[in-house]
Computed example of a mutant assay.
Amino acid sequence: MQILNFPLYEFRFKNSENKLYIFDIVRKKFVSLTPEEWVRQHTIQFLLKEKKYPQSLMNVEKQIQVNQLTKRYDIVVYRSDGSIFLAVECKAPQVKITQQIFDQIARYNMTLKAENLMVTNGLHHIFYQIDYVNQKYVFLEELPDFYK
């Protein structure tokens, strides 16, 4: 797999029927290792190890309803009160981060109402907050520290 713009992390892998799987510590199971999953697993490790976000408040690949359509978000970090601190959209490294990707997470966020958003393809990471009062994005140099 491609080297990404994250620190190096250790992962558990298994091979079954000529297919490679990676262990997701949040979902507590092996999942098929696709380029997007490689980015997702690195992002999870980054949030846990570098940002110290609590694993117990993290959710991965859950369904949500967006405009009567069923969608799946990549990663969400909750606060203990149930509000969403962070929503993350992961793409494979070869996928360029475009306005279309921002529009996708913005649509998801109409349901999620996350305070912070992250978009990454593993090579480029973009962090921003939603200013709900002025209805605009505020881009950040890095993700904020977690607070409950």
Rank of each mutant, 00 (worst) to 15 (best):
Leu57Met: 13
Ala114Asp: 00
Leu143Ile: 10
Lys96Tyr: 08
Ala106Ser: 15
Gln2Phe: 10
Val66Tyr: 02
Leu86Phe: 09
Gln129Gly: 12
Thr111Val: 07
Val31Ala: 05
Met58Gln: 08
Phe46Asn: 07
Val66Asp: 04
Val31Gln: 07
Glu50Asn: 05
Thr34Asn: 04
Arg79Gly: 09
Ser32Pro: 03
Tyr132Asn: 04
Asp24Val: 13
Lys71Phe: 06
Ile97Asn: 02
Leu4Asp: 02
Met58Asp: 14
Gln99Thr: 15
Asn116Lys: 13
Val88Arg: 04
Val133Thr: 09
Val31Tyr: 03
Ile25Arg: 11
Cys90Asp: 08
Leu33Arg: 01
Lys91His: 00
Ile101Ser: 08
Asp81Thr: 15
Lys91Trp: 02
Leu112Thr: 14
Gln68Tyr: 15
Phe139Met: 04
Val95Glu: 11
Phe6Ile: 02
Leu117Gly: 02
Arg12Ser: 13
Gln94Asp: 12
Tyr147Val: 11
Lys49Cys: 11
Val39Ile: 06
Tyr78Asp: 03
Ala114Ile: 04
Tyr108Ile: 09
Val95Asp: 11
Pro7Asn: 10
Asn121Arg: 12
Ile105Ser: 09
Glu50Ser: 01
Asn59Trp: 02
Tyr21Glu: 04
Val39Gly: 05
Ser56Ala: 12
Pro54Cys: 08
Asp81His: 11
Ser32Leu: 15
Tyr78Ser: 09
Ala106Ile: 14
Glu89Phe: 00
Gln94Cys: 07
Tyr9Thr: 05
Tyr147Trp: 02
Val76Trp: 00
Phe46Ser: 06
Pro7Gly: 06
Leu123Gly: 02
Ile64Val: 10
Glu142Val: 13
Leu112Asp: 10
Gln129Tyr: 03
Arg40Thr: 01
Asp103Pro: 11
Val77Thr: 11
Leu48Met: 05
Lys51Thr: 10
Val66Ile: 05
Ile130Asn: 12
Glu141His: 11
Ile101His: 06
Val88Gly: 05
Asp103Cys: 05
Glu36Val: 10
Glu17Phe: 14
Phe46His: 08
Gln135Cys: 09
Leu20Cys: 06
Tyr78Val: 04
Lys148Met: 15
Glu50Met: 03
Leu112His: 11
Phe30Tyr: 15
Ile64Asp: 04
Phe23Ile: 07
Val66Pro: 00
Phe46Trp: 12
Asn5Glu: 04
Gln55Gly: 08
Phe85Val: 05
Gln55Asp: 10
Thr34Lys: 04
His125Asp: 01
Asn15Val: 15
Phe11Met: 02
Lys49Glu: 13
Glu115Gln: 15
Glu36Pro: 07
Gln104Asp: 00
Tyr78Gly: 02
Gln2Glu: 14
Arg72Phe: 12
Leu47Gly: 00
Arg40Asn: 00
Val76Lys: 05
Ile25Trp: 02
Ile75Ala: 06
